[in-house]
Design a protein around this nucleic acid. Sequence first.
DNA 1: TGTGATAGTTAGAAGCTATAACTCAGCGAC
DNA 2: GTCGCTGAGTTATAGCTTCTAACTATCACA
Lengths: 213, 213
Amino acid sequence: MTENVSSRERYRAQVRADIKRHAWEQIAEAGVPALSLNAIAKQVGMSGPALYRYFASRDELITALIRDAYRSLADTVRAARDAGAGVPGLAHAIRDWARADPQRYLLIYGTPVPGYRAPDDTTAISSEVMSVLIDACAAEDVGEPPTPFGTHLETHREWAGGHPAPPAVLHRALSFWTRLHGVLSLELAGHFAGMKFDPDLLITEELADLAGR
Amino acid sequence: MTENVSSRERYRAQVRADIKRHAWEQIAEAGVPALSLNAIAKQVGMSGPALYRYFASRDELITALIRDAYRSLADTVRAARDAGAGVPGLAHAIRDWARADPQRYLLIYGTPVPGYRAPDDTTAISSEVMSVLIDACAAEDVGEPPTPFGTHLETHREWAGGHPAPPAVLHRALSFWTRLHGVLSLELAGHFAGMKFDPDLLITEELADLAGR
DNA sequence: TGTGATAGTTAGAAGCTATAACTCAGCGAC
DNA sequence: GTCGCTGAGTTATAGCTTCTAACTATCACA
């Protein structure tokens, strides 16, 4: 079985990428529930069951998409950091990324299927994002005393990947995440539809409130 | 057609309630995507298409469930207010309500289907909830000067149903909603799984931070 | 005792995921 | 160059889904 790895493997990878590309298109326009393997197969140019050579099941395809979404988010966040973005800059980058493809954000942070368990590597990527957020919060640290919740966090800091930031910084990073997600997910889900204020201003305000804590 | 309204109508209403009850059970244990009209029909004791006498389509059933969920949330929030709950008490009531049936909360605030438009009365109930939140924030008002975002809100206050609260209060109510949803939705979706802190403490802290703004 | 609305039935179309069994093309080994 | 294996694709099919059509039986009322 020492066959020409590159040729067959390259083809395989390219077809898998093709499938995922069409899957994203379907998801973007009608959400995950409307994702049909049959329809994708036809778009790719093969007939139905052939697609199962590339993804063992619908769930496996979706899992691959989730993984890619996490990867894309992590790359975006890191790129923003490398470009010198502070806390507000990161928030902007994440919001732009989310708005570019709402269903991609919601695939990660939206309604989960009760039984579903995300593969371990996605949680690894997720904590990669978290660590960038903590770094950013640490960079703007002015040495506040630990909040009560901060000390509570202190005793359970495994989630930060052992990041050595002080409790107040961990707390700020967590608040950053939850506040941004709070506004962003409601915005993407269309719950601000009637009310015509600018969500970007609200986020800015939420983060400013965080900085001066 | 001046028939015995009460008898037939009562039966109809009872069957509809039965159907919804089984639908909620399915949703609670496997989420909306797993909701099967066929399975429900068999559980209720009728065979397949009979269910379409009661709900014209799967979407219509789900819409009815969404409506009931909104109604239940509004009742919960109002009951908490009538019991004398302040801002933290309301947050607690909402969180308890959500944790009692996570999929019910996520049916309202989770990932929406791109094309779907919620019926108008649900948005009415939604603003009913909002007005209770604004009232609670107004009760704890100490007359802060309007925030910049508050004045921005001032010019677009239709969403508050014309509530006469000052800008700073509108702002606080909105922040209350987004902060609570931020923590709660991540909690319900299981994104705090690895990190073993207490979400309730984080919410408390987020709201305390809001009160002293 | 009729009569019309309504609740239920079975049959079936069209779609889905997924499996089974098969054909055919291409690569490696001899 | 030929043999044989591996893997990509096919069609057929099972079993599920939503939903429509056509039919029957029942129930309330005149």
